[in-house]
């Protein structure tokens, strides 16, 4: 070994093109430089991935906007936020056979999102069980091949949301509802018709609402129609959390308000949630009265949420948006002068 080393050193000395190995210092410098470059590149790659996911979410919102417009073309009104015969409080009626909470806006636009099979499932359940929502995803129907509600639909799922394959299971018979990421705008007030019936407060959709374009007096370009919602990813009680459930027409499941800003630190006031501030999902229980339920738009995009306006356009709203502008966007006939920041 020694002889060879000596030999090679000797050869190097006489060579016209000197060759030598790398010293530790040189190696460390190279590694440091590579480390810095990777450090610069990785966030960029992650940002590009999020940008792609965001585009997919934007596309979903655009499709919902188109579907809602097609619904409007057919029926001359936007769909109700939810059919709710016991407005505003269907609590305690679920599973009892008493008509409680029915189909929501996301169900009504299924045929316009090329989900005809799911829509027929809705109609089958509506005819057999007027209390409807209890039976979405219920084993009784799933066994017959009617899976409406029990699965997340790609059209209602934003890929920016961390994936979680669980379903809601809060013990109120709506056990098997699949998760979703979009909510119809109920305006700057709350859940009940006391808020949504008033155009100065309510949005373009409401409980049992039959609102048309002409009711949107603020202008369709100044009124939010659909925005984003989160559902719980971690925690033992995540199954009991109703937030982010596409087929369930309750506040924060598939409905939201602009009462609090995008990704607001204010806890959502809803029935059937378990607060999780660490996930950016604080909430308090507001069950009496149910009319006062409210929920912020929440999403996983850095810095804000996406939303579809009533004219079908999709925009990004910064969470730093002045609250009065956001609330003005939420109302359908608030009479606010359009204002940007």
């Amino acid at each position: 070994m020694k002889a060879i080393v000596t030999d090679s050193i000797g050869r190097r000395r006489v060579s016209l093109h000197p060759r030598h190995g790398f010293t530790l210092v040189e190696l460390l410098v190279v590694i440091a430089i590579i480390g810095v470059m990777v450090g610069l590149l990785l966030p960029a790659v992650q940002a590009a991935r999020e940008a792609a996911r965001r585009m997919s979410c934007q596309n979903n919102l655009k499709q919902m906007g188109l579907a809602l417009h097609n619904y409007h073309d057919t029926h001359r009104v936007f769909p109700p936020g939810v059919v709710n015969p016991r407005d505003p409080n269907p609590n305690g009626a679920n599973g009892s056979g008493v008509p409680a909470m029915g189909a929501n806006w996301a169900a009504f636009i299924l045929p316009y999102l090329e989900q005809q099979a799911h829509w027929e499932g809705v109609m089958t359940i509506v005819q057999e069980r007027p209390e409807v929502v209890d039976w979405y995803g219920h084993g009784v129907y799933v066994n017959r091949g009617i899976t409406v509600g029990s699965q997340p639909l790609p059209a209602y799922t934003c890929p920016s949301h961390p994936s979680a394959d669980h379903q809601m299971a809060n013990g109120t018979a709506m056990e098997h509802l699949g998760r979703g990421n979009y909510g119809a705008n109920y305006g700057k007030g709350g859940y009940g018709r006391v808020h949504t019936g008033d155009g100065r407060v309510g949005g373009p959709m409401a409980n049992n609402g039959k609102l048309s374009m002409t009711d949107i007096r603020d202008g369709t370009s100044n009124t939010l129609m659909v925005s984003e919602l989160k559902f719980r990813v971690t925690g033992a009680n995540r199954h009991q959390d109703t937030r982010g459930t596409w087929a369930y027409g309750a506040m924060t499941a598939s409905l939201l308000t602009t009462r609090t800003g995008p990704n607001s630190p204010v806890p959502d006031g809803v029935w059937g949630c378990r607060s999780e501030p660490a996930e950016g999902m604080p909430c308090i229980q507001i069950g009496s009265p149910y009319t006062e339920n409210y929920s912020a738009a929440r999403g996983y995009h850095p810095g804000g949420v996406l939303g579809t306006l009533a004219d079908g356009s999709v925009n990004f709203y910064s969470e730093s948006i002045a609250l009065d502008i956001w609330q003005a966007l939420g109302t359908r006939a608030g009479g606010e002068a359009p204002r940007t920041e």
Binding site: N94, G139, N170, G171, T172, A173, E175, G269, I284
Partner: peptide
């Protein structure tokens, strides 16, 4: 906003028809 009521902790039901009773008042 004051929280004046609490949801009773519930457990997921079984998949049997009729088992879906809910006293979620």
């Amino acid at each position: 906003m004051q929280s004046t009521s609490d949801e009773i902790e519930t457990v997921g039901d079984t998949d049997i028809e009729g088992a879906a009773d809910s006293e979620a008042e």
